[in-house]
Computed example of a mutant assay.
Amino acid sequence: MREIVAKSHVAEELGPMLVAFFLISSLGLATIALDLIGVGPTQLATQLSGQRDGTAVLAAYLTDVGIWAISLLVIGLMILGYRSYRSAETRRLVAVLWDLGTFWPRTVHPFAPPCYAARAVPELTKRVAALAARGPVAISGHSHGSVLAAATVLRLPPAALPNVALLTHGSPLGRIYARLYPAYLGQHVLCDLGERLDWRWRNLWRDTDPIGGPIFDHRAAEPTCGNPAASQVDVRLRDPRALTIDPADTVPPPVERHWPYHTQPQYQEAVRELVDRTSHRRQGKS
């Protein structure tokens, strides 16, 4: 169980890993490009030193290492493709990374399909605004769907917000997006999101979930977002649900990790609570 929880925290190191990956890849590609036009590190070191000394030899070795590293990277991508074909868990990981990239505009991923958020978010915004004009609306978003739900709430007109509540589960908003894209979905944006909804927001998460996590860091002495209501957003679920075998079953309860949360009683309770709060607010204003 401790191993599962430890593996679920790998996503928190995604930012430094991506920075290192892009830095090393950029240096490797630049080295190969210079070598192809005859001004690679080996030639430059030889010209600067005036003779083929230890500096030139070292540059040659470093160039070879870079070429080998890029070759191994290509092989690793091929292995990843094969593993994705054979393993459902690997496919889910690749799908998460794909969603993470293609959520942003085409300039971020020029070789991938067009950004789907440019179409999905306006459509969701229009749909939610129309429903909010008729009564309470609880938006539920699992995993990357919670990012679309958050973007939708941020685009809603002020007239619709009093009738809207948000339920996120397995959400990467706090664990991944706030770390990798702080200017767009950082702590200040998440606090603004809660204020827009008057904190009609619940986020279900598990320690064993490798993607989803809490939205806010509640370890600080000061109230999160300067509002005590923010401390009620995150709801930690027990996983597995029990340690003993249910009398009506023959196997121990499974470790659900990132599995959808809608089958748990806490999900139903959160939906009822959010709808009740939205309905009471609507009745109080009518």
Rank of each mutant, 00 (worst) to 15 (best):
P122G: 08
W199I: 11
A117T: 00
C225F: 12
H144Y: 12
V128D: 00
A229V: 07
I139S: 02
V5K: 05
T208R: 02
R277S: 09
L23I: 09
W201G: 02
Y261V: 09
H144D: 02
W68Y: 15
H144K: 03
I79G: 10
Y177L: 15
W199G: 09
A20P: 07
N163E: 14
T168Y: 01
G54Y: 09
Y261M: 12
G101D: 06
R83G: 06
G38C: 10
L62Q: 09
W205R: 04
I211S: 01
Q47P: 08
W104D: 03
D99A: 13
V235S: 13
T244K: 02
F21W: 12
L44P: 04
G76V: 08
R119I: 00
W98R: 13
L154A: 10
E12T: 13
D217Q: 07
E222Q: 14
A178K: 01
G213F: 03
A69N: 15
I4N: 07
H258C: 03
R282F: 06
P182N: 12
G81L: 11
R86P: 09
T278M: 10
E123H: 03
P260R: 07
Q47K: 14
D249Q: 11
Q268V: 13
Y61L: 12
R200K: 11
R277T: 06
R179D: 14
Q266N: 11
L58Q: 13
E273W: 10
Y177H: 04
N203K: 05
R238K: 15
V233R: 03
V255K: 01
P254L: 07
Y85L: 10
L34Q: 10
R179W: 06
P172W: 08
M1F: 12
A159R: 06
A248K: 14
G38R: 13
P114K: 05
G145S: 01
D239G: 07
E123C: 02
L100P: 02
C115S: 15
A165V: 02
